[in-house]
């Protein structure tokens, strides 16, 4: 049985229509108009124990809403969520014992208290046995480097320190699942790397299932075995990163510097070059690597021009996601890979 089961999940919000101007405002005091906004529309998936899933999508796509329903903070409009066999919003407290959550920029620690006291309160709140607490503190403290700031009040911490403390607090009670809503937002590269290492370590050592939302594609690349992409409340892609790259990342860009002025030729277009751009001596050619390979292109060009330098760039993950989002507006049906 999968750890998390989400079936036909839907969430609508009723939002009051806002109006500008004096009379419309007066009118709205007596008679309120509401509009329905669908935040999550018919999403289904399952997650097994030990997976690290990246849940991505543009702002307002419905990522946080889905996670809040999985945590039990929000009640679905229709559809079902089962976590560990429990319905989260009906068994919120029971569910809470077995999960950890970090919500981006909002700390869940006690603002005015030193980190170590906050962590100790967490221990009491979750009834963590003393030896387990010590063990976890030793392990987490080491990876996250808590020692340097554990006696500092939470409000005086830097963003990176606070995030590290929050992560530690969210995992102290050995949860089965941890939900991380943008855990690396606004952090420098060093801290990001530290946090990723921590997530990997916890996943490896404890088998903790990790579900994270992010805008940082290197989080996805370095952590996630599986990616789910949502847009406009719909699940557009669910599968592993390699497949995503193969399906959407097949465009390559060749960049060459030529002695002569490069002139675009029909022969190249027939070969499958989809676009070209020439700026002084530098030319960029874009093509689908499924249709032609770079050696055919470079051979054709070297026969006609003297090439000083060239390089071939694969599509970066950001680009893939951008293509994916752009593709959604045209393509109605989501691409879905069947998970084994």
């Amino acid at each position: 049985m999968p750890l998390i089961e989400v079936q036909n999940l839907r969430k609508e919000f009723k939002r009051q229509k806002r109006r500008d101007g004096f009379w419309p405002l007066m009118k709205s005091l007596v008679y309120r108009e509401y509009e329905q906004k669908v935040a999550v529309e018919d999403i289904s998936f399952t997650i097994d124990q030990g997976e690290i899933v990246g849940y991505i999508g543009p702002n307002g796509a419905g990522k946080s809403t889905t996670i809040k329903m999985m945590v039990g903070i929000l009640v679905p409009t229709s559809g079902a969520v089962h976590v560990n066999g429990l319905v989260p919003f009906e068994n919120r407290i029971k569910n809470a014992r077995r999960i950890g959550a970090v919500f981006g920029q909002k700390s869940q620690l006690w603002w005015d208290t030193p980190v170590i006291e906050s962590l100790r309160l967490t221990k009491y709140m979750y009834d963590i046995p003393e030896d387990r607490y010590q063990q976890n503190m030793a392990l987490f403290g080491d990876i996250l480097g808590l020692d340097e700031f554990k006696n500092v009040a939470v409000r005086s911490l830097s963003l990176g320190q606070r995030m590290r403390a929050d992560l530690c607090a969210a995992l102290l009670h050995d949860p089965d699942i941890v939900y991380l809503d943008e855990p690396t937002i606004g952090l420098d590269v060093v801290v990001k790397e530290r946090i990723r290492e921590f997530i990997r370590e916890i996943n490896r050592e404890r088998g903790t299932t990790v579900i994270l939302t992010t805008h940082d594609m290197s989080d996805i690349e370095k952590l996630c075995s599986r990616v789910m992409v949502v847009d406009h409340g719909k699940l557009m892609y669910d599968g592993n990163l390699t497949t995503l790259k193969n399906d959407y990342g097949n465009m390559e860009t060749m960049e060459l510097d030529t002695e002569e002025v490069f002139v675009m030729d029909d022969a190249l277009l027939r070969m499958g070059i989809t676009s070209s751009q020439t700026e002084e001596a530098r030319t960029q050619l874009v093509y689908d690597k499924k249709n032609i390979n770079s050696s055919a292109v470079i051979k054709w060009i070297m026969d006609r021009y003297s090439v000083r330098d060239f390089k071939v760039k694969e599509t970066e993950i950001e680009e893939i996601i951008r293509n994916l989002y752009a593709g959604f507006s045209q393509e109605e049906r989501p691409r879905q890979e069947v998970m084994a």
Binding site: G72, A96, R97, I99, K106, M125
Partner: peptide
């Protein structure tokens, strides 16, 4: 108001 009320709902306490 600030949206941080969620943190009360993810804790194993009423």
């Amino acid at each position: 108001h600030k949206g941080s009320f969620d943190s009360l709902l993810v804790k194993p306490i009423n």
